[in-house]
Structure formats: C-alpha cells, structure tokens
Design a protein around this nucleic acid. Structure first.
Length: 590
RNA sequence: GGGGCCGUAGCUCAAUCGGUUAGAGUACCAGACUGUCGAUCUGGAUGUUGCGGGUUCGAGUCCCGUCGGCCUCGCCA
C-alpha cells in the first residue's frame, strides 16, 4: 500500500509551481547517476518531469534511488524548484523546474524490458505486438491512442448536436453470405446453428429508421474474415450513421460537417466544403480506379483509336479485339533508364498487364523501340493528347479495360510516390458518385451489387432496370481522401416491391431472399421512411490524420497478418468439452 | 491459394567466394563520478545464428522442408 498519493502529473508542473510540495508517480524513464546527485526523468501519460536525489538533502532517499532501474514504478514527494541558471531543458515542457525528492516510495520493480520504451529505433512488429502493453507505454503510441480518442469525442459531440442517437446493435447476429466471409459463432443453446459477427450494422440501422429513430450513429466494431493488409484488420471500427427523409446531398453535407469538425478540432486545419465530386465513370477513365488520389494530376488518356491506325501489332490486335490502349504522361521522366522502365513493366505485370509500351518525348517527337510503327501524324496526335513536352515519358498498357485501369492506376501512384508528388500534409477530399448499381460476375454468370443489395437505383433509371441493368446508376457515394476510400454509403431502398425487384435482378430467388433478409422485407411493409446512410473507416481516418500508413499504429491490440494476436495467443485450440457442448467436431487435418 | 522480403546477443544490425575464436552499437551488470537531460569514464557478462534435415573436410552463409513476422496479387457485397 502506498502512502503517497499524487498531487500532480508528470507533465504538469511549471515555473509557477516552484516552492510547492508535490507528489508525483510514474515510471523511471531515464536515470543519470552522478554518484552524488541522481537525476531521474519520471514518466506518465502526461509527460516527464526531472526529479533530483541529492545526498545532502536526503541521504536515505538518495541511497535508495541508486537502486532504481528503468521502468520501476515509484511515487516521490518533494519540493518543486526552479532549475539553476543554464540548467533548464527547453525540449521538455517541464524543463524549467525539477523536484527535489524527500520521500521515495518504490511501488513496483521491472525486469529489463524486451525493448526500450523510449527508444527511437524501430523494433520489429513481432515484438511490439507480443508485448503490446509495453509498446503502448511508448509516448508515441500513447499520443496515437489519445488522438484517436479525441477524434471520437469530436464525432460524438458533432452527432449529438445534430440530433443523432447512439444506439448499439447486436454483435451476435445473422450470417449474410454475400460480401466478405463471416466470422461465425456457434450457438450452444441452438445446436448446429451459428451467429455471425456483423460485417457492418447495415440492416439494423435501416430497421432503426423503420422504427422512427430518424438519426442514428454508432462508433462500432465490424468483422470481416478476409486476408489482411496494412490498411485492413479483421476487426475494425466504423463511424456509422443512418438518416431518415434525406437524399444524397443531406448525407454528404452531414459528413462534410463532421470531417470539417474533426480536422479543425484535432489538427487545426480548415477544410473547404463542399468537397469535389467525381463520377465513377470519370474516376475510372481518368485515374483507373474508384478512389483516385487527387493530390496530383498525371491523368490517364486513351489512344485506342491511334493504336489501331499504327503499325504496331500489339496495339492493333488489342484494339481490334475490343480491348483498349491507355496511358499516362510521367512528366519529366524521359531520363529514366531502360532498367527503371523495365521495373515498371514488371510492376504492371502483377496486375495482369502483359507489357508496358513507352515513348520518350524529345524536340523531334517520340523516341522508343516502337516509335517506328507510328507515323509522324500519329505521333503528333499522341503528343497532343497527352499535352506532352520534351523530357516527358509516356507509358501505355494495352489490354482489356480492367487490366488497363488497374495497371495504370497503380503505376500512376507508384511514379507519384517515387517523384514525391504525394504530399502528406495535403488532404484532398472528394466524393465519388454515380456508381453503377450492378457489376457482372463472370465467374458466377450473374449480376452482383457493387455496393450492397439495399442500395437504391437512381429514380430515372428504374425504367431500364431489367433491360440494361449495367447502365443503372446507384444512389451511392464514396468519400475518398488522398486515394484511400474513407467510407461509403447510399440512399437505401425503402419499398418492399423495389427491394424484391433488385433481389430478382441479383438472381436471389424469393425463398432465399426470405430466408436471408425476410425480416428486412417484412419491415419495409410497415411504413419504412425514405432513408440513407454512410459509414467511415475510423482507423483509416485516424491513420491519415496522423500521417501514418498502417492502421495498426492506431489500434491498441491489432492482429498480425495471419490474423493472430501474439500477445494473447489467439486464436487457440479449445478444450474438447467446449466443442462437445457446442455439438462440434473438427475435421482431421488433411 | 500465388509472388516477394526477412529471421544472428535483451534490442537494432554486421560477419568478403562456404573457412577455423560470430562482431559492433545500445541495453544489462559492477566500479568511479555532485548539474545531468541520448550523462560521462573504466571494466564485465551475454549466442540452440527460428526449428528440422541435407550437401561439404568445413554451413550464419548453399539446397530442401517447416515455423514465425512483413509487403503484395487474388479476396475485402
């Protein structure tokens, strides 16, 4: 038991506190033992304070202080003093004072930690995750966690003042086999049956609108059993909302207000609204993806027509077989060596592109191995189309649209990164709108929802729903920040008859629709209001605000790429009795 | 499921073409030191080179397998 109770935190004391008697507690950060006087930087969540043990002031405390080691937990009582002239530390907020210790209480010792808590040097992810509680003791991680907290607080205040109600939705819910893989939870009471963890609270928030809750929000965990990436964890957090009697503009305005508030109150930045809008078609044509990074230009242009007229066989055959030829202008990159261009070629190979055609631009036109297949007129057309100038490098992919788009989109990002065009202190928001409602799934030979099956089509496209389904636009919108999809949403279908039409378009028969979404269809019969919503990826947003590139940096206890928790050692095998109680048997490993 | 990178002292890394006693910095331990703040100085201890097998006179180094971490394609309505 401790007698000393802290009166101040380690980041709190200032010159004005000089003369007062205080108690501090915290962790021994660094120790500087001069044999005579001993200095210790005492650390807690709030900061660091230098405490001083002087044998002339207190012999016993000084004696005991020489046994203190890194990460020991102590409480000290002493007097705050202004530091002597020339001894202040301008790098510390408490650097003008120090505390002369009169009483030292050792609250706990510590073994040597597996890595240094204060070390600037990077420690392997593996160790950090295994000893996450120590990793989280590092000031930078504490800062990240507190920043995330602040973002949430700003969001909650914003939602509250805009009449949103925070309502919790179930974690144990029904499996929806569309979309990502579900995490399943076996039911003991209902043997042979399973809950699923929600991929999002989608249906519940729509049902809350049917309930007349009008405006719902939640900061909520979602679960998707898919492979991990730096930007993707199996459990992640969404800023989720749904509103009644609204259209796209209302949702976008609310979100713009939220994002403005978050940026202003957490990083002190003013954002300009409304955010830029890009149609899905434009985004795909100009950037090759539906989440373009608009911090730089380097847009894609198509030259299928020119390629067809050229004598270059690869371009000819692609153009004739319904493929396309598009490219980008890597401005000022004509100095790139063959080796560097070869690296780009193998880079686009991974997205299915069979090759990368290129021209360097000089005063006389285009030069490259394939330039001879292009007449002067065609070369001039290419130069004009790309607004190319001497010193530029033009890069082309010829293939089917999906391959061309993805290759050029990734290549564009790759080159921009190399050339430093992506500035991390620039935040370029945009909305991508007018998504197609459906996409054709070649493998399954049917249409799939691009967003989800509850997304409303545009009013004026209802007429062509059955005859030209791929031309139907969805009332969906994605919020994109610096090439990263921060979130997306839609105006939902609120009428049962339309929802049924969509299910039948998706080849979901009546019986299946009833089995999976019967409760939604039923609810839509009882006066469901028009409604819509959106969800933002909180982890991603916090990561971007902090100019980091890995969402694990803002998640307290993240999983490894194999979806394990190195600290808790999860997942793990369970006792046979637990399985038996659940009525489960495991298949023998193959 | 595919491709790639990595694994050496507590930590971060080095170790030439496969060569004899595997090093450095830091942390740690001991001693010295009354104004440091990455304290300093002197000394010390520290290794299943992830694990298993193979090739070789000889393997940290080459080969095969395996485990783990990371990146990435597929996947993520």
């Amino acid at each position: 038991m401790t007698d000393l109770k802290r009166t101040h935190t380690c980041g709190q004391l200032r010159k004005s506190d000089a003369g007062s008697e205080v108690v501090l507690s915290g962790w021994v950060d660094t120790r500087r033992d001069h044999g005579g006087v001993i200095f210790i930087d005492l650390r807690d969540r709030y900061g660091k304070s230098q405490i001083v043990f002087n044998p002339e002031r207190n012999h016993e405390a000084h004696e005991r202080a020489s046994n203190l080691r890194s990460e020991y937990v102590i409480a000290v009582k002493g007097k705050v003093s202004e530091r002597p002239d020339g001894m202040t530390n301008p790098d510390m907020s408490t650097g003008e004072i120090e505390v002369y210790v009169e009483t030292l209480e050792l609250l706990n010792t510590s073994e040597t930690t597996p890595f240094e808590i204060t070390a600037d040097t990077e420690v392997s992810t593996e160790l950090r995750l295994k000893y996450r509680y120590l990793d989280l003791r590092r000031p930078v991680m504490q800062k990240n966690m507190m920043f995330r907290h602040k973002v949430c607080q700003v969001a909650r205040r914003y939602f509250d003042r805009n009449e949103f109600v925070d309502i919790e939705t179930p974690i144990l819910t029904k499996s929806t086999p569309e979309g990502a893989r579900d995490y399943l939870v076996p039911s003991r009471i209902n043997r042979g049956q399973f809950y699923a963890l929600p991929q999002s609270p989608q249906l519940f928030k729509q049902l809350l609108m049917v309930s007349g809750m009008d405006r719902y929000y939640q900061i909520v965990k979602c679960f998707r059993d898919e492979d991990l990436r730096a930007q993707r964890q199996p459990e992640f957090t969404q800023l989720d909302l749904e509103m009644s009697f609204v259209n796209e503009e209302d949702i976008m305005t609310i979100i713009e207000g939220l994002v403005v508030a978050i940026f202003k109150e957490t990083v002190g930045r003013e954002l300009h609204t409304p955010f830029e809008r890009t149609s899905y078609r434009d985004a795909m044509d100009r950037y090759g993806c539906d989440a373009p990074d608009l911090r730089f230009d380097m847009t894609i242009h198509e030259i299928t027509d020119i390629g067809e007229k050229s004598d270059f066989k690869v371009f000819q055959s692609v153009a004739k077989s319904g493929g396309q030829i598009r490219g980008i202008n890597a401005s000022g990159c004509a100095t790139f060596s063959r080796k560097e261009i070869d690296e780009f070629t193998s880079f686009v190979n991974q997205f299915g592109a069979k090759g990368l055609a290129w021209f360097k631009v000089d005063d006389n036109g285009l030069t490259s191995q394939i330039a001879k297949f292009f007449s002067a007129e065609l070369q001039a057309e290419i130069i004009e189309r790309f607004n190319a100038r001497p010193g530029d490098l033009l890069l082309f992919v010829a293939d089917k649209e999906s391959v061309v788009s993805q290759s050029l989109s990734q290549l564009r990002l790759n080159i921009a990164k190399q050339r430093g065009l992506m500035k991390d202190d620039e935040f370029h928001f945009s909305w991508v709108v007018d998504f197609p409602l459906l996409e054709y799934n070649e493998e399954a030979g049917r249409y799939d929802s691009l967003h989800h099956p509850f997304t409303s089509p545009h009013h004026e496209d209802f007429a062509i729903l059955e005859e030209k389904p791929l031309d139907v636009r969805a009332r969906a919108y994605d919020l994109v920040l610096n090439g990263i999809e921060l979130g997306g949403g839609s105006i939902r279908i609120h009428r049962a008859d339309i929802q049924k039409r969509i299910f039948s378009l998706l080849n979901i028969d009546e019986a299946t629709a009833q089995k999976r979404f019967g409760f939604l269809l039923e609810a839509l019969k009882y006066g469901a209001p028009p409604h819509g919503g959106i969800a933002l990826g909180l982890d991603r947003m916090v990561t971007l605000l902090l100019k980091l590139d890995d969402i694990r940096e803002v998640i307290a206890f993240p999983k490894t790429q194999k979806a394990t928790c190195l600290m808790a050692d999860a997942p793990s095998e369970v006792d046979g009795n637990q399985l038996k109680e659940l009525g489960l048997t495991l298949l023998k490993p193959e």
